[in-house]
Amino acid sequence: MTDDDGDGTDHGRRLPTFLLIGAMKAGTTSLYHYLGAHPQVAVPQYKAPEFFVEESNWHRGIDWYRRQFPVTGPEVLAVGEASNSYAKHPRYRGVPARIAAHLPDVRLLYVVRDPVARIRSHYETRAAEGSERAPLAEAVFADPIYLDYSRYALQIDQYLEHFPREQLLVITSESLRRSREATMRRVYDFIGVDPDHAPAELDRDFYRTSDRAARSPVPLALRKFLKHRFPSTRRFKELETNTLGALRRVTGRTDAPARPAVTVPDDVRARIAVELADDVRRLRGHLGADFDGWGIA
Rank of each mutant, 00 (worst) to 15 (best):
I145R: 02
A214W: 06
G245A: 10
R269M: 05
S121R: 07
R208V: 13
I171S: 03
R60C: 10
T28K: 00
R204P: 01
V79H: 13
I272F: 04
P115Y: 03
T241K: 10
W64P: 06
L276K: 06
D203A: 15
D189N: 14
F206S: 00
R253M: 01
G295K: 08
S210Q: 14
H122E: 11
D266S: 03
V112T: 04
E124K: 11
E54M: 03
A153D: 08
G8E: 12
H38N: 02
A256E: 05
A87N: 06
E161P: 01
Q68G: 11
W64E: 06
G252Y: 07
N84W: 04
R223G: 02
R107M: 14
T254L: 15
A246Y: 08
I99A: 07
D105R: 05
V193M: 04
V76K: 08
E238T: 14
T183W: 12
S121N: 10
F230H: 06
L160N: 09
D290Q: 14
R204S: 02
Y188P: 04
T2C: 11
E50P: 04
S56H: 14
R14A: 15
S173N: 09
S175Q: 14
P115N: 05
R14D: 14
R223K: 05
Y146P: 05
G288A: 06
T243A: 11
D148G: 00
V187Y: 11
Y149V: 05
G27I: 09
R178Q: 15
A101V: 08
A137R: 10
L20P: 05
V43N: 06
L202S: 07
T72H: 10
D63L: 12
